[in-house]
Design a protein around this nucleic acid. Structure first.
Length: 851
RNA sequence: GCGAAAGUGGCGGAACUGGUAGACGCGCGAGACUUAGGAUCUCGUGGCCCCGGCCGUGGGGGUUCGAGUCCCCCCUUUCGCACCA
């Protein structure tokens, strides 16, 4: 092989005289095969096959955000793990589609562009080019003919189309809402992007603002999103995260009628709760959501969120000043302070009262910021005896704390030192006294429901998805605002609404998008009436770009639709999706929602996008998370330069269980490097390989190895599969023995998912035509040949190992006992007497219990 | 606080349904071979030790002939969520 890179001392020491040994030079081998794959289209699924595949396998991995820094080790780890999976499927004869793309819109890119004083439209193509180069270099089986870049009009045209489908389906709505505002990023954040009251990107304290926003009604899909989880083959942790995020809780809406001293009534209750009972029709009811309707007898006051629309109605003139002051303070407070759980409870009495629907007694109505408008009905009944927060509130304001549930050993009069939330029987609850908590929840709800004062309900924590961003770097939302017609969707044949190149795209404190400063862009005519109109100047959330990209990949050549129905039917849903658990909730949930919505709107015939999802682990360095500030970031390029992509891939997969991650140590790469060198030295030169049948012992080991790797690879058991191959090679080379062709040839395809370049090279040298990845070359194993004919049996006396025996497989208990008793050491511990008891596990263990 | 996962040699990590704890690799030690190669190849490598054993999988109990694995209590770490009514 010619040496294209004489500058690289690793790949070749200057020149190769004819007499020089044929050493393993990874950069030569890898350059050769990357070029060959490109020239032959090895990794491309051609149009015809895309339309009618034999055994389609859609191998998806999370596409990267193309940062200026380039691929990091975490990316490579994830992609390699996914690539190993895809290559294994292909070696077994599947038609594997393995695309990659770039998630390049969003605040990340925009903030970076602002920082370096460049334009994202200039930066992104450079970054994409750099990522592409790096991705090719690591040897992924990517189909470069089917790649997406979310920032190209060809792609976001269909993102906008998607918005219009949801709009038409009644799943997109514009509403003014209190939103999270990041003063540093100067943009609205979705609730999901607020972490503990801080911006998940820049950690600034988030404030509240009211802005008109576009929302997708994902909350109306909450029950299905939750129920379907049970049917998915997903990492358990991911499913659990979604389950918690959706946050189903069963309970009841209870209605508390306003008492006589409340302000004038002018209609129904707050919220959008269902039909009202007769008793409630002409009175103001405060609706609360509770999971503990059984404790209603212990509800001795109620609390409204400061923003609750009924606050005015309950506020008496004497309390007005205090209430207004409290509301003003709460409105000004940022969410960090507002949501802090460890601060002492604050609140103000409105002066008004409600009637407890169970006891009929008047109870005071308070407002407090620990009640959130965004959850339930924005109002609660306070049961200090059996709710920790209410207990704390009662303690602060010296309110009475009656007991209505008695746990074991308690009675109706046992004082409460803290809120009791455990099981028990009702007390001080009228006719319900003595009833178990669980039964009482149902019975109390039924009892109140008869009078129109309650209704069993299921509540979800999941909020609607705010997709508006008051930023520049995203797809414009395809809506036109017309004074006469209102919001008018841009007709589909006018898509894409092109994002204009704007040099001044810096957001400002006005709370509107930078596009709102570009009159020549937003000034347009109404598609409905033709009158003067204004384009929506908000762009959409990046999560929308990534919520459907897997639908686009196979259809990137399709110009007139987001995805071709035939191709989509052939390839989707995705067979295996591999990615980071940091997207366990948002990206995966949004993708599921979009797929479900498209299904309901008649565009897809399946409703779950990812049949199988596996979350990979995290790579840490020397026991700590990699970060620039710690200075322990591993830069991949020099390592690949030095050892080659195959060694790097192998090392990453060998570090630890793929789904758990591993600890990267610079020195550790020597193991996989040495292994690949030994593989090479064992096979090359092929003329030196011995012909003939494999040595029986080696052959047994071979079949055991094939069996193990074949079993473990689909389960992503990469580290142990590699260990098995290492063991096998050790067996082949034991004592310096010369390998036979039949012993090493099957090892090449086993290694191919991890080290595709080396495998191709050795495969070719072994005399095969074409790519090892064409033609299902995964080796078969013979279960009969996996079985050992002698086994090592441990001999225990009283549970302690005293000897080991080499016995023929299947040896009887009698034979084993005889052989064991002949062992000097066994006899010493056992004595002469016959054992009191014998435990015999065939081919494994013999335990003699002495009397 | 709630939820999830995990604690095994100097290190990363193995161990199927309870059945020889420490595979594989790093590191380390000894030796061999070397016109020097990132060397390579052997052998060894949990701790203690009277060389027969004893102790050992975060700690403490328990079940069992036998527990890293099962049960109970506790400790620690990581990751989610967090005033969710």
């Amino acid at each position: 092989m010619p040496c294209p890179s004489p500058a690289n001392p690793v790949s070749c020491g200057m020149t190769h005289p004819d007499s020089a040994p044929d050493l393993y030079h990874p950069s030569d081998v890898e350059a050769k095969w990357q070029a060959a794959w490109e020239a032959r289209g090895t990794n491309v699924v051609p149009e015809a096959r895309l339309r009618s595949p034999d055994r389609p396998f859609y191998n998806l991995m999370m596409f990267p955000y193309p940062s200026a820094e380039g691929l990091h080790v975490g990316n490579i780890y994830a992609f390699t793990g996914a690539d190993v999976h895809g290559r294994f499927q292909r070696l077994q004869g599947k038609d594997v589609f393995e695309p990659i793309g770039f998630d390049a819109f969003g605040i990340h890119s925009e903030n970076f562009a602002l920082k370096v004083g460049s334009h994202p439209m200039d930066l992104i193509p450079k970054n994409v080019a750099n990522f592409t180069r790096q991705l090719r270099r690591i040897g992924g089986m990517f189909d470069w003919n089917h790649t997406v870049d979310t920032t190209t009009p060809d792609y976001y045209r269909w993102t906008q189309w998607l918005f219009l489908q949801l709009y038409k389906g009644g799943l997109a709505e514009r509403k003014e809402a209190p939103v999270n505002w990041c003063p540093s990023c100067m943009t609205v954040l979705a609730n999901e992007q607020v972490q503990g009251g801080q911006c998940e990107r820049c950690d600034s304290a988030v404030e509240q603002r009211r802005i008109a926003q576009w929302f997708f009604r994902i909350s109306s899909y909450a029950p299905r999103l939750l129920e379907n989880l049970a049917t998915l083959d997903w990492s358990e942790t991911t499913r659990k995260a979604q389950e918690n995020w959706i946050g189903r809780s069963e309970g009841a809406i209870l209605r508390f009628p306003a008492a006589g001293d409340a302000g004038a009534t002018d209609g129904g209750a707050a919220g959008d709760a269902a039909t009202e009972g007769d008793a409630a029709s002409d009175a103001t009811n405060v609706e609360v959501f509770t999971t503990r309707p059984d404790t209603v007898f212990g509800a001795t006051w109620m609390v409204l969120a400061p923003e609750h629309p009924l606050v005015d109605r309950f506020t008496t003139p004497g309390q007005r000043a205090e209430v207004e002051a409290y509301r003003a303070a709460a409105a000004k407070m940022d969410l960090v302070a507002r949501k802090k759980t460890d601060k002492t409870k604050t609140g103000v009495f409105t002066g008004g009262h409600c009637l407890n629907p169970a006891t009929g007694r008047e109870i005071p109505v308070w407002i407090s910021d620990y009640v959130l408008m965004e959850y339930g009905t924005g109002a609660i009944m306070a049961v200090p005896g059996h709710d920790e927060r209410d207990f704390e509130f009662a303690s602060t304001f010296a309110l009475p704390i009656p007991r209505v549930v008695a746990g074991e050993g308690d009675d109706a009069a046992t004082p409460l030192e803290e809120a009791y939330t455990g099981p028990g029987r009702l007390v001080n609850s009228g006719d319900f006294d003595g009833m178990e908590v669980d039964e009482a929840k149902r019975a109390v709800t039924e009892w109140l429901a008869e009078r129109g004062l309650a209704q069993g309900t299921v509540n979800f924590r999941l909020h609607d998805w705010c997709i508006s961003r008051q930023r520049y770097w995203g797809p414009p939302i395809p809506i036109v605002h017309c004074e006469a017609c209102g919001h008018v969707p841009v007709p589909e044949d006018q898509l894409p609404v092109i994002l204009p190149r704007v040099e001044d795209f810096k957001p400002d404190d006005s709370g509107v998008s930078p596009l709102a400063r570009v009159a020549e862009w937003y000034a347009t005519s109404c598609p409905a009436c033709g009158g003067a109109a204004r384009r929506e100047t908000d762009v959409s959330d990046t999560f929308l770009d990534s919520a459907w990209y897997f639908l686009r990949y196979p259809s990137t050549d399709v110009a007139d639709a987001a995805f071709d129905p035939g191709i989509t039917k052939a390839w989707l849903p995705v067979d295996t999706y591999i990615g980071g658990n940091e997207h366990a909730v948002l990206h995966l949930l949004y993708s599921r929602f979009i797929t479900m919505a498209l299904h309901d709107l008649g565009h897809l015939d399946f409703e779950e996008p990812f049949t199988r999802f596996r979350a990979h682990g995290l790579i840490v360095k020397d026991g700590a998370k990699m970060s620039k500030s710690k200075g322990n970031v591993v830069v991949p390029d020099p390592i690949i330069e030095e050892y080659g992509a195959d060694t790097f891939r192998l090392y990453l997969m060998f570090l630890g269980p793929f789904e758990e991650g591993g600890d990267y140590r610079d020195a550790g790469i020597a193991g996989p490097w040495g292994f690949l060198k030994r593989v090479w030295d064992t096979v090359v030169p092929v003329e030196a390989l011995l012909e003939g049948a494999p040595d029986p012992a080696v052959e047994r080991k071979l079949h055991q190895t094939i069996e193990q790797v074949t079993r473990q690879l689909p389960e992503l058991g990469y580290n142990t599969s590699i260990a098995a191959m290492m063991e096998y090679l050790n067996a082949v080379r034991a004592g310096g023995r010369q390998a036979r062709r039949a012993e090493v040839e099957p090892l090449v395809p086993l290694l191919a998912p991890f080290c595709p370049h080396l495998a191709e090279e050795l495969w070719e040298r072994l005399g095969h035509e074409g790519s090892i990845f064409d033609g299902a070359h995964w080796p078969a194993y013979d279960p009969a040949l996996c079985i050992e004919d002698t086994v090592t049996v441990a001999v225990q006396v009283n549970g302690k190992v005293r000897a080991t025996l080499e016995l023929p497989r299947g040896a009887s208990e009698a034979d084993a006992v005889a052989a064991a008793r002949a062992e000097e050491n066994v006899a010493r511990f056992l004595g002469d007497a016959p054992p009191r008891r014998i435990i015999f596990v065939q081919d494994r263990l013999l335990n003699l219990v002495a009397s």
